[in-house]
């Protein structure tokens, strides 16, 4: 054995170097092509099918354990659960009573303004697979993919609110980037007064930030943030989070606002993929696609921008607190707070 190996060595030193260089060039080529072009999408989808059995094999024991625990719960626990769910259902139904009427009214009003952007059309439920994708990025893998019509940039909700959006699609699985990922940004609106801004992830599942609000902005802790629907990626009016803390430092021009996400980012097992209703006719998104692109990078927030009224691209933040009525954007102005499918989703 040993003799075999030592003769083996001398003969193969050059071979090793050559093969190393070849493989490295191949890997570099893959990186460049995958980063800059779209050709590898199909290959990646096929590869994700190959990876699927491994992912299933890893996830299934945990799912089996969950199933086992569920099936051995006592009758009392089930009863308590049922009572709780029924109470929740009653509450939800109370809230729903006026929903239909309100939705119809909203549709009518929007139709008057020729703006039906951001209205949801249909849902698809997906299960989160029990896997750790990456310790340093906030992503989850869901068991729905291109086969089910899921597409990149699609909005994903859970029962509490906005969860994230689809970053990558495989044939059978999709990778969802959470709203709390450090590269994710989402256009939001304060429900109380209609103030528009952008909520940026922090890399911490329990916290988002509003980095673009001036210290004078009308925001208090407890404010509910909902999606504004601007930019067309997310449906309008879904809860994103509640303001947890507002720190105003008079020396800074921007306030430091912490938001607690509405979705149970670390616990949700079932997610909803959302399809938006195709728009009737509106030149808005095309115009906004370019104007908002410069807002997203989070590095922008760190530089304390002087307090001049943000003019064009940074117009996400109204300089003072404008009256609510003014805030609802007329259909024709390009929405300033357009968030591109977040930087992270594009850049890989």
């Amino acid at each position: 054995m040993v003799a075999f190996r030592s003769t083996d060595t001398s003969g193969r030193t050059t071979g090793l170097l050559l093969r190393c260089v070849l493989y490295c060039l191949l890997a570099l080529a893959l990186i460049i092509v995958d980063k800059h072009y779209d050709h590898l999408g199909r290959i990646r989808r096929l590869l994700s099918i190959v990876a699927y059995p491994v992912q299933i094999a890893v996830a299934s024991p945990f799912e089996g354990w969950d199933w086992f625990r569920e099936s051995v719960t006592t009758r009392d626990a089930l009863r308590a659960d049922k009572a709780k769910l029924e109470a929740e259902l009653r509450l939800a139904q109370f809230r729903l009573q006026r929903y239909e009427a309100l939705e119809a009214e909203s549709l009518r009003l929007r139709a008057l303004r020729n703006n039906t952007a951001g209205i949801t059309d249909r849902f698809l439920i997906g299960d989160v697979m029990d896997l750790d994708l990456d310790a340093f990025r906030e992503r989850v893998l869901v068991d729905k993919g291109a086969r089910d019509g899921v597409f990149v940039g699609q909005a994903v909700l859970d029962s509490g609110g906005v969860f994230g959006q689809v970053a990558r699609v495989g044939q059978l699985t999709a990778e969802v980037i959470l709203v709390s990922d450090a590269t994710h940004a989402i256009p939001v609106q304060i429900n109380r007064n209609g103030l528009r801004t952008i909520a940026v992830g922090t890399g911490d599942m329990g916290r988002l930030k509003l980095p673009y609000l001036p210290t004078s902005a009308d925001v208090i802790s407890g404010d509910l943030l909902v999606t504004s629907g601007l930019g067309g990626g997310f449906p309008a009016g879904y809860p994103v989070g509640t303001v947890a803390e507002v720190k105003r430092d008079p020396a800074q021009s921007l306030a430091d606002v912490d938001v607690k996400p509405a979705a149970a980012l670390d616990r949700s097992r079932e997610l909803m993929f959302v399809w938006l209703r195709p728009q009737a006719s509106s030149p808005v998104p095309a115009a906004s696609a370019t104007s908002g692109a410069s807002v997203a990078p989070s590095g922008h927030a760190a530089a304390p921008a002087p307090a001049q009224p943000p003019s064009q691209s940074a117009a996400a933040i109204p300089p003072k607190t404008p009256p609510p009525a003014k805030n609802l954007p007329p259909a024709k102005t390009p929405p300033p707070a357009k968030t591109p499918p977040p930087a992270g989703a594009n850049d890989e």
Partner: peptide, 28 residues
């Protein structure tokens, strides 16, 4: 040897959902 390294790297790329070739390059 290197073929194993390259293949394993590609598998890591796919399963972690990062840019294809990243782990493959490092591992090779």
């Amino acid at each position: 040897g290197l073929t194993l390294a390259f293949t394993a790297g590609l598998a890591l790329d796919v399963i972690h959902g990062v840019v294809l070739g990243q782990h493959a390059l490092a591992l090779t």
